[in-house]
Design a protein around this nucleic acid. Sequence first.
DNA 1: GTCTATACCGCGATAGAC
DNA 2: GTCTATCGCGGTATAGAC
Lengths: 204, 204
Amino acid sequence: MRKTKSVDRDLSPEKTAAILDGAIQEFLVKGYAATSMDRVAAAAGVSKATVYSHFQDKEALFTALIQRLACQKELFNSEKLQAIQDDPALVLRAFALEMLDKIQADPHLLTFVRLIIGESSRFPALARAFVQNVEKPSIELLTQYLASRPELRLPDPEVAARAFIGTIVHYVILKDLLHSGDLVPMERDRLLDNLLHLIIRPAS
Amino acid sequence: MRKTKSVDRDLSPEKTAAILDGAIQEFLVKGYAATSMDRVAAAAGVSKATVYSHFQDKEALFTALIQRLACQKELFNSEKLQAIQDDPALVLRAFALEMLDKIQADPHLLTFVRLIIGESSRFPALARAFVQNVEKPSIELLTQYLASRPELRLPDPEVAARAFIGTIVHYVILKDLLHSGDLVPMERDRLLDNLLHLIIRPAS
DNA sequence: GTCTATACCGCGATAGAC
DNA sequence: GTCTATCGCGGTATAGAC
């Protein structure tokens, strides 16, 4: 009776990890509907029956996988913001560059976002987990920083934070997610420089 | 020899329209992989063989459908911006409200964007068509307007336009697309008011 | 606990009647 | 030009050996 309702108890944890690792590849590349449990099993190096002994069905496997990824993907570590507290321009630039670099460095990240958005109708709980673990901390972190700098004279730090993040996210969506950077060209540094000028304005 | 390579010539155009209409429902709701040609045929009220006589295969039907939708969905008509040229604050607010209203009014629009993003890996050409027909005109229209108002003293009108649009798009993505408005709450009017203050700043 | 083998269904695409 | 009927394949999920 010590068992929880989780299916994973009393099953080899290494197989569970192998299945999840295999499932990452398949689901991220193919999407939910186009991913077959046969290919997941093959990618994990186990039989299909083993997959079904660790996870109730395809939907449960997908949900467990996305929940795990949503917890792993954190766009920002608050340490960097604490490090250079002096110049807001440097902090904001570092904030944006870290975001852009994380996307460049982790090729899974874009695919993950694509999957979250694409399946957000059929799996709204996963979309919410993504916002809770990735978007919300980013917004709150930047909001708190901006609010801690009264010399910026921002009437609403949270709106400023959303504008800053929203601008960069929209830029990434057009350029990388939708593969259309050439259709609406914009240099990264030009965007960052002038975006900073919108937030950090000269004292009036 | 007057035939083009298009499959549609010499086939009843009304059936073609019926098939496309049926396909809209199925593809938008289920996504590409989970949509079956049987259901498309049923929704269109024709047989599956008829579908295949009008479109080469599933991929061709999907591509034709998305291309058509991408041309229909225009977020903005430039007339409204011309109408109230006086006060930039009114123009920008009208711009944002029209965008938000269009999303509220057309329930297909969000689903369409979800599909475009979700399939942007497997159908990059469709993602590019979406940017070309929907995003690009919006950015260019707002950029031109902002550039035509030198009294705003914007160092880079295009970056300002992207910040404005990006902020709103990001807001809609969190609230409506990802169903997470309650996780990161923000009143619409509060966002708009303070976003305007970032663009239209008091003369320094 | 993990495997092989299989049941059962629905998929995309086509052949042939009319 | 559109239909009905069907083919062949690959899907999810499970039963039973070990």
